[in-house]
Amino acid sequence: MTWISKTITVFGGLLLAHACYSAQEHSALQSLRAATSTLTSSSPTAAALPVDIAIETVVATLVILLGLVLGTRLLRPIQWRVWAGKIEREGEEGFVDNEGEVNKDYVGNPYRILETRPGFVDIRKQRREFAQWVKNGGSGGAGAQ
């Protein structure tokens, strides 16, 4: 979906640039006319911006907004069970930011340490298991608790 949002944003940017350019041209024209009108002393027309330029500016801003909003990721869930389910179902992939990196504050299931218990780690058992795993050719035996 990103290319759609990017196209829309770029299109909105072009519109906005066009509106700015039109406004600039309009004011240049107005000042030229004002300089000549002092000679001819015609009616002092107000240098108001034509309404089509104003509309174009507003539309361009809305289009840019639309493009940016379409390009953002989904908001994070605020319901506990949805959030927890997302962690279980998607793992790290569900918590990447716009650059495609995993969020820094992502910790997975925060209650996992109640089952892994790093404070009570049995390092000798872990070393034995790792040595066994290496001996088995480094493939089977993923049973690490």
């Binding site: 996992r112 795993w133 993923a142």
Partner: peptide
């Protein structure tokens, strides 16, 4: 995906620990 160093490693598989 490489495991992050910011999480406690005790539940990782041997391959991930090696990595």
């Amino acid at each position: 995906m490489a495991p992050s160093l910011l999480h406690p490693p005790s539940q990782l598989s041997p391959a991930a620990a090696l990595q």
